Simulated scan of single mutants.
Amino acid sequence: MLEVSNSGDMELIFRIFEECLQPDVLIRTELPVKTTGAQAFKDVFAMLYRAYPDLHVTVEDVIAEGDKVVARNTVTGTHQGEYMGIPPTGKSVTYKEIFIARFADGRIAEVWGVVDVLSQMRQLGAFPGGRGS
Rank of each mutant, 00 (worst) to 15 (best):
F99L: 09
R15F: 02
D67K: 00
G132K: 07
E60F: 02
G113C: 00
A46C: 13
A101N: 12
D54A: 07
P88V: 01
V70F: 12
Y95G: 08
Q22V: 06
M1A: 14
G81M: 00
P23T: 04
R131H: 07
D105C: 05
V93D: 06
G132S: 12
V117K: 05
R15M: 03
K96L: 10
R107L: 04
T35P: 08
D9W: 09
S119Y: 02
M47F: 11
T94Y: 03
F41M: 14
M1T: 10
E18L: 02
G125E: 10
A51V: 06
A51C: 07
V117M: 14
A109R: 10
A51S: 12
K42Q: 15
K34F: 07
T78G: 08
F45R: 15
G130H: 05
V115C: 10
A64M: 05
H79A: 02
E97F: 06
V59G: 03
G130Q: 03
G77I: 01
Q80S: 13
V33Y: 02
G106F: 04
G81K: 00
C20D: 11
P87T: 03
K68P: 01
F127G: 03
V25T: 11
S5V: 12
L124R: 02
R102I: 04
C20S: 14
L12F: 11
